[in-house]
Nucleic acid binder design. Sequence first.
DNA 1: CATAGACTAGTCGATTTCGACTATACGTGT
DNA 2: ACACGTATAGTCGAAATCGACTAGTCTATG
Lengths: 205, 205
Amino acid sequence: MAKRKVSNLLALAVLSLLNERPMHPYEIGAVMRQRGLADSIKINTGSLYSVTEALVRNQLIEPVETLRDTKHPERTVYAVTPAGRTEFLEWLRSLIRTPFKEYPQFAAGLAFMGHLAPREAVALLAERCKLLAADVAEIRSAIEATAKFVDRLFLIEQEYSLTMREAEVKWLHQLIERIKDGTFTEQKGEQSAWKITHPDPMRPH
Amino acid sequence: MAKRKVSNLLALAVLSLLNERPMHPYEIGAVMRQRGLADSIKINTGSLYSVTEALVRNQLIEPVETLRDTKHPERTVYAVTPAGRTEFLEWLRSLIRTPFKEYPQFAAGLAFMGHLAPREAVALLAERCKLLAADVAEIRSAIEATAKFVDRLFLIEQEYSLTMREAEVKWLHQLIERIKDGTFTEQKGEQSAWKITHPDPMRPH
DNA sequence: CATAGACTAGTCGATTTCGACTATACGTGT
DNA sequence: ACACGTATAGTCGAAATCGACTAGTCTATG
């Protein structure tokens, strides 16, 4: 994510909600959680205030009033600026259009999987399959339960999440099979070991 | 990713490479790039040194010598400690076993897609499809080219990457179809608009 | 009535991330 | 000879991220 003045996705959420109406940061956090946005965008209180400041500094939002209420701490209400509205829409477009490079943790794990014995790798992958399958079931029922009172438009992202997990489970099954069937391994004595035919400095053992 | 003393995936790469042999950070960076690890783990020079310091601070690696060479700047060589070896393996296991929550940028885009007109959304999604398809083709040829001299074990992560992109392309096609076929939309005058039947504060317009 | 926990709205300081920069050496082209 | 680009090995300072903490109010419970 290059060149954006503020790039934390929290800022996108802030811009989106302020597009609806002015709010103070605590309220933004509460609405995000209420709407399940915390599922797509990581919320951290410190970052929410920090991002809000950055948006102000870059004139994408501005403070419009400060409310005092004997019952509550003082709160500052922000509204989006025209520049902020523009940034929001452009950012949103680029998020939908451009498949930006991601660095999923599992990919890093796979890159170093050769450090583990094939047998152990298979066990771990199988466990991952189980956990993902549970995720899949959970997302499924959440979608069904929510579909009763939420428009499908707002379930798209859960469906995406579901699809990607299902694809991973499927691939994992295949990977496990291939490890077991000897595609990646060879027998060394009683143990099966990764098949390494290029013992050069390219990769570990 | 909770509780790890050092959690940047760069640190995992450092631990992995130092498991092979002692190296200085610049060399670690170079080897990572040479091996294509920069594809799975984001490298930033400042972070590499910072992460190295954090690993030292937490006694997962230690400096073993400082080399001076009239041609090159002074360099500090680090080696992994027993605790570092243990941490590496446990971290690796957890990366493979546990599907930790990720926050892909596209998911955030989908969460707010309702802010765009359906027509525009479709155009953007179609563009994304194209870009992803190009990624798919590229990864495919990279795998084929590399398979000639790299063991399959070391291509697993590229295959994962390929699979996930293919799944996304497929799903995108379906999503586009569903937007076009009226699943998500309704006619409002001459324009098609998102079908919103719950105009409550749950979501934007 | 007192206490504990949750809620409200934010702060704080430590750590991490980022990307430009430093300074030297070498190779290449003009 | 000079300029430029690349390689070597790292530094630096600004900004971002994180998660615990602050302080007051309200509610429920004993």
